[in-house]
Write a protein that binds this DNA or RNA. Structure first.
Length: 599
RNA sequence: GGGGUCGUAGUGCAGUAUGGUCUAACACGCCUGCCUGUCACGCAGGAGAACGCGGGUUCAAAUCCCGUCGGCCCCGCCA
């Protein structure tokens, strides 16, 4: 079909020749066509300057009545966020007119023809100013929020990360294989999102919390090295680093042991950081035993960009007369301490507030010790500490005059937890966490099981398919709950960015673990029968890991919430402000699914 | 399930402790006009909020109380 020239749309006649981020001095003299959004308009009466924006950047275009009367008149009508196309010539800017803040700052385009491709309402918030916009507004107008350069950078970064991962893994012989979203609910783990089946009345699918079982089956099928960048779903409460649907880099390999996986992942991570941030990360990453990080940092994902480790003072006070301490030692507890940085910043009031915080973990009190010159101390427990203990203490914590030590005593786990949280709190309030530093570490040798106080039973710390440490296998008969597992976490700057394990590849051992978890044979058969069966047909030794892509990207983007790197995130109450999901469905839909709502 | 915090023009905020001076301030944006070298343009003028919603206390409520809705942060939870 041939349209008369004047009926053709702008795009049938005009083709974009460049993005708004790529022109420079080299293009001087070229006639170019740019298309984009009006970022800002500066009307000088005579000249009108417009910063034209697309995802690649901004270019200054100039409307000069001496070049085109028509374009200049039309430029009066345009407003921010109008979509326009301009045809013009690239001019170098004079020395004084160069804008170093713009990629294209050394040129400008003098317009001889313009078309308004679309108008825009005045946006509800400015897309190019420096003030913070409320989260609710941003999410309600996410399509505009995503137009902001910061968000565009984040989303582009996310693409880049995914692409680098795919290229890297493909280069190492990995295959990306899809696994189902409509699958079955499993008893262990997080709450499932469930989906009713119309063709199977009364039955439900569950959306996967992870492709765990499928990737193990793929190993049994012989696919050897698998990965997938995949959405996962968990119906649990949200946090800044936790969304109900999130993206995971999921991996599994056969014929490997833990260290093979570690070195592969270290290669992948250093590659990513090099390509994305231009930063060299040292390999191999340090490895820590779960028990060690728990006693030194009170948490299984310590941020090692700063010190302030938890000190164990039991040895120093083993002969103390102070009953509050001796009783704790006698009962197998721990006297723990943290030496704070910037001790001069702590007033009596600050210390009291910290004690209140410590008490919220169930400890009775927190003592402080301030070291003075010589062998003197100022302390809430000064009268219970003798000179010998003071000098031993000074040695142990390497105290300088003026240093401040916080001391708590009680049940070992509670002391570790409380001091671990105190350590983080101190680091944040003292602002001692260095920016731009990336600290990776592996945490290994997790307990195989953990006791749930709320459910009053043992469950797998990682998941029920995790292999026990070889030398602990005999313990499964004697004291199973002391056994360690071949699970590992990758921690980056205090975030758990990845976790995985070497899996069980023998039916008997898998059955044994189900027994210990109180999953009886019938239930195991019903829910995991396919896995138990598959393990009987030549399952290779295998293991894997999964990474939180959102968290990883968040850290690479230097953002504080994964919402900043997800195009269309949910709110804290798991709703979508854009679409209004979740929402009621029609009675017809419910009827079809044989569902009744009972509120 | 629990704790905290925020909600005032289109946006960001001040005002809330000690109710009356709030006829709600400021900045950005918006509208009109002027301006040929700006780039967070400038100048002059203008419009725009009864303070999330509901109830209560009071002579009087943005401000106090109760409830409720929503955003965010944290604990629990998240194999």
């Amino acid at each position: 079909m041939i349209l008369p020239e004047e009926q053709k749309t702008a795009l049938q006649i005009w083709k974009r020749t460049h993005s708004c981020g790529e022109l420079n001095k080299e293009n001087t003299g070229e006639t170019v066509t740019l298309m984009g959004w009006v970022n800002s308009r500066r009307d000088h009466g005579g000249l009108i300057f417009v910063d034209l924006r697309d995802r690649e950047g901004k270019t200054q275009v100039v409307f000069d009545p001496e070049i085109s009367q028509d374009a200049h008149i039309m430029a009066h009508k345009i407003r921010n966020e109008y979509v326009i196309a301009v045809k013009g010539k690239v001019f170098p800017r004079g020395k004084d007119a160069i804008n170093p803040n713009l990629k294209t700052g050394e040129i400008e385009v003098k317009v001889h023809e313009m078309r308004i491709l679309n108008q825009s309402e005045t946006p509800p918030f400015s897309l190019n100013d420096y003030s913070e916009i409320g989260d609710d507004l941003r999410l309600r107008y996410r399509f505009l929020d995503l137009r902001r350069p910061e968000m565009q950078e984040n989303i582009i970064l996310r693409h880049k990360v995914a692409l680098l991962i795919r290229n890297f893994l493909s280069g190492r012989g990995f295959l990306e294989i899809e696994t189902p979203f409509l699958t079955r609910s499993t008893p262990e783990g997080a709450r499932d999102y469930i989906v009713p089946s119309r063709v199977n009345p009364g039955k439900f699918y569950a959306l996967p919390q992870s492709p765990q079982l499928f990737k193990q089956l793929l190993m049994i099928s012989g696919f050897d090295k698998y990965f997938q960048i995949v959405r996962c779903f968990r119906d649990e409460d949200l946090r800044a680093d936790r969304a109900p649907e999130f993206t995971q880099l999921d991996m599994e390999m056969s014929f490997i042991e833990r260290d093979d996986l570690f070195s592969l992942i270290e290669d992948l991570m250093t590659y990513l950081f090099k390509e994305v941030l231009g930063i060299e990360i040292e390999k191999p990453f340090p490895r820590y035993d779960y028990n060690d990080v728990m006693s030194k940092y009170g948490i299984d994902k310590p941020d090692l960009r700063y010190g302030m480790e938890i000190q164990d003072l039991n040895e120093i006070f083993k002969n103390t007369d102070f009953t509050a301490f001796s009783e704790v030692i006698a009962s197998g507890g721990k006297i723990g301490a943290i030496k704070t940085e910037q001790p001069e910043k702590f007033s009596r009031k600050n210390i009291d507030d910290l004690e209140i915080y410590i008490k919220s973990f169930g400890l009775e009190r927190m003592a402080y010790i301030r070291f003075k010159d010589d062998n003197q101390i100022q302390s809430s427990i000064a009268k219970y500490i003798n000179d010998e203990e003071i000098s031993a203490l000074k040695d142990k914590v390497q105290a300088k005059p003026g240093d401040l030590l916080f001391v708590v005593a009680g049940n070992t786990d509670t002391v570790n937890e409380a001091l671990g949280m105190l350590r983080i709190k101190l680091a944040n309030t003292l602002k001692i966490i260095p920016e731009g530093e990336y600290n990776f570490l592996w945490v290994t040798n997790f307990p195989l099981f953990e006791y749930s106080k709320t459910e009053k039973r043992y469950s797998s710390m990682h998941h029920p398919f995790t292999a026990p440490v070889d030398e602990d296998i005999p313990m499964l008969e004697s004291n199973p709950f002391q056994a360690r597992s071949k699970a590992y976490d990758l921690v980056l700057n205090g975030n758990e960015v990845g976790g995985g394990s070497i899996r069980i590849h023998r039916t008997e051992l898998q059955q044994k673990i189900f027994d210990l978890l109180g999953i009886n044979e019938i239930e195991a058969k019903q829910k995991f029968g396919f896995l138990l069966e598959a393990l009987q047909y030549g399952a290779p030794p295998h293991g894997g890991i999964a990474f939180g892509m959102d968290r990883l990207t968040m850290i690479l983007a230097n953002a504080t919430s994964i919402r900043e790197v997800i195009a269309f995130p949910k709110t804290q109450r798991a709703t979508c402000m854009l679409t209004g999901a979740p929402a009621e469905v029609s009675p017809e839909q419910l009827k079809e699914l044989h569902l009744k709502i009972d509120l």
